[in-house]
């Protein structure tokens, strides 16, 4: 096998399709976290919300057989956990890092307890099926039809959330308020912008999207729930917000890069090319860090990130 054949067996349409699937939960969670961070709130509890979202969606589908009910359950639970985090960090002005870890541990433990109590053992469900876009899913050229137009609804929605959130940040009054509150809450307050209301809203949006991120695993990509299903994906999502420099497009590129390297190492093993598994496993992290280093120094970090707002201070 010459080098071109080897490369041809590695860089396939299935790797690209897997990249989109793997990126989906990261995208939902990281875009949601971008809303929170742009308004000055750091939520390290994203992974806990994802777990609760994953379980509630799974259990609702198991009980009702209705996928939309499952999705709604994940959104409601995620929103409520976002609300709780907002109450802790905005109203009570608690240290955001520590309270986020608390929320994560709550989600980890509660989802496990509920799973043990209500379900007992791993069961599979019928999740969201792939949607084949008529006329487009048949495109054979470079596997484009298979990669982009044969995914399940949540994959499409995850990527749709990127331009939608960019539009909200850059073209709407609400987006302007979010940025103002994140950069200079005192000035925003002086302009009659309710810092509290904006931060509650962004934290709830972040919670809802983290809930959907969890649901994307349990009722769309894996169709199963297990304890600690996310395995720390929520923390990677938080890191992706930094990687993307608080911009939806940057977040998406980070999620795609990380997922692509993961998909690539799986493909390399699947075709029987022997490389040390430890190397291939650390590759996504190493390459993402290198990319972060070279991504540019100009930071658009919200200056009020993690700083509680107190009028008059």
């Amino acid at each position: 096998m010459n080098i071109l054949e080897v490369l041809g067996s590695i860089f396939t349409a299935s790797v690209a399709a897997a990249t989109l699937r793997l990126a989906t939960p990261y995208l939902f969670a990281a875009i949601g976290e971008t809303f929170a961070q742009r308004s000055g709130l750091l939520n390290l509890g994203v992974d806990g919300i994802m777990l609760m979202g994953a379980f509630s969606a799974f259990y609702a589908v198991l009980m009702t057989g209705n996928l939309l009910v499952g999705l709604a359950a994940a959104m409601i639970i995620g929103g409520l956990m976002g609300l709780a985090m907002a109450f802790i960090s905005v109203t009570l002005k608690a240290q955001q890092g520590i309270s986020g870890i608390g929320l994560y541990l709550f989600g980890l433990g509660m989802s496990e307890l509920l799973f043990q109590t209500l379900v007992g053992t791993p069961k599979s469900i019928q999740g969201f099926p792939p949607i084949y876009i008529p006329g487009l899913s048949d495109i054979q050229f470079l596997g484009i039809g298979r990669i982009f137009f044969s995914q399940n609804i949540l994959v499409y929605l995850a990527f749709l959330s990127v331009p939608v959130s960019a539009f909200i940040f850059n073209r709407t009054n609400f987006g302007l308020k979010i940025r103002a509150v994140g950069q200079n809450p005192a000035a925003a307050d002086a302009m009659d912008v309710s810092v509290t209301r904006v931060r509650y809203a962004t934290q709830i949006i972040g919670g809802v999207m983290a809930g959907v991120a969890g649901a994307s695993l349990s009722i769309a990509l894996l169709d199963v729930f297990q304890q600690n299903l996310t395995g720390g994906m929520g923390f990677i999502a938080v890191a992706l917000v930094y990687f993307g420099r608080w911009k939806p497009l940057g977040v998406m590129l980070g999620a795609l890069l990380f997922s692509f390297v993961n998909a690539l190492q799986l493909q390399i093993s699947a075709v029987g090319i022997q490389i040390p598994p430890e190397f291939s496993t650390m590759a996504p992290y190493v390459i993402t860090i290198i990319a972060l280093v070279f991504a540019g120094k100009q930071s658009e970090r919200p200056t009020a990130l993690t700083v509680p707002f107190q009028r008059g201070e």
């Binding site: 299935s14 790797v15 897997a18 699937r21 793997l22 939960p25 695993l217 990509l221 894996l222 199963v224 297990q226 304890q227 600690n228 299903l229 395995g231 994906m233 993961n262 998909a263 799986l266 493909q267 093993s269 699947a270």
Partner: peptide
Amino acid sequence: GDVPLATEAATAF
């Protein structure tokens, strides 16, 4: 415990 990665590994096979 990484179910998503194991699932994609299976899909790659």
